[in-house]
């Protein structure tokens, strides 16, 4: 079993908690209490390694930090994304504003974590409100706009709905597969190196870098 740490970031009310609950409990409430500080949840998924001969699934456990979205909670964020393997940066498709907030988060992650191995996924939520067949299309952020940005920044990108569940599982599945891939490569290269130098005491590269931000109040 592998364990990965995943953090959700994004403006208040974009649906971070709803996404996590859809993933962890496969349920949705129209009204869920707003998050104070942060909540911690975990959930496992199975992935199949097509490249190996083994027919057995690999179990991946996600340790998920669901954070509070209001601006002033931002100062606590470094504690959450410290050592994270993946970050889901969520915005609300019906709120243009929330995309720019998401972009701020992406910048912060890139500046403060600065790890190429950190998987960042941009996630547009509330897709169910964007049914164009219905007259009530509330979309405010065009798919292309976000997509182009995600490609520029080298992010994963999905549009999902926590309400209907559309796309939510896939997001975690593909992040899981990616992380597994990285992990496998890490282990292979570690083995290789260990063979080279019999006693390789500590392999610093394998560690997830911590945030080196002396101004963060917590760590």
């Amino acid at each position: 079993m592998f364990q990965f740490k995943l953090v959700l970031l994004g403006d208040s009310s974009v649906g971070k908690s709803s996404i996590v609950h859809r993933f962890v409990k496969d349920s949705f409430d129209d009204f869920r209490e707003s998050t104070i500080g942060a909540a911690f949840l975990s959930q496992t998924i199975k992935i199949r390694d097509t490249s190996s001969d083994s027919t057995e699934d690999t179990v991946i456990k996600f340790e998920i930090w669901d954070t509070a979205g209001q601006e002033r909670y931002k100062s606590l964020a470094p504690m959450y994304y410290r050592n994270a393997n993946a970050a889901l940066v969520v915005y609300d498709i019906t709120q243009q504003d929330s995309l720019s907030k998401a972009q701020n988060w992406v910048n912060e992650l890139k500046n403060k974590v600065g790890d190429e191995d950190l998987i960042i996924c941009l996630l547009g939520n509330k897709l169910d409100l964007c049914d164009s067949s219905d007259n009530g299309d509330k979309r405010a952020v065009m798919t292309d706009e976000a997509k182009v940005y995600a490609e520029e920044q080298d992010l994963l990108f999905y549009e999902v709905s926590a309400k209907t569940g559309q796309g939510v599982k896939d997001v975690f599945q593909s992040i899981g597969e990616k992380l597994y891939q990285i992990k496998k490569e890490e282990m292979l290269s570690k083995k290789g190196r260990q063979a080279a130098s019999a006693k390789d005491s500590v392999n610093v590269k394998l560690q997830r870098p911590s945030t080196n931000d002396p101004t963060s109040c917590c760590y």
Partner: peptide, 17 residues
Amino acid sequence: LYRLPPITLCTASWFMS
């Protein structure tokens, strides 16, 4: 006191609410 232990992320909400 400055670099608060992680558990304070939980206990902080006890105080806030």
